[in-house]
């Protein structure tokens, strides 16, 4: 999925997706819930105080 497609699905500027990817912006709970909905992932997967592990591993752990 491209940044533009994701941005359209969660109703933000495509640049904001870039900011989120780089960790330059922390999303609000509302935006985080929208993003989690798009990826069918729990919202906890989007927040962390430590650097993220690869997304595939995180999802595998969360889904048991």
């Amino acid at each position: 999925m491209s940044r533009k497609e994701l941005a359209e699905r969660v109703d933000v500027n495509p640049q904001t997706i870039g900011y989120l990817e780089r960790g330059d912006y922390a999303p609000s709970v509302e935006l985080a819930l929208k993003l989690a909905g798009v990826f069918k992932a729990p919202v906890e997967a989007l927040f962390s105080l430590k650097p993220f592990a690869p997304l595939g591993r995180t999802l595998k752990e969360l889904r048991g």
Binding site: D11, V12, N13, Q15, T16, Y19, Y25, P27, S28, E30, L31
Partner: peptide
């Protein structure tokens, strides 16, 4: 885009902007 961000109507900006 910066000038858009600083002058645009709030309803047309996302939460980061």
């Amino acid at each position: 885009s910066l000038q858009r961000q600083s002058q645009e109507q709030p309803s047309r900006l996302d939460e980061r902007e």
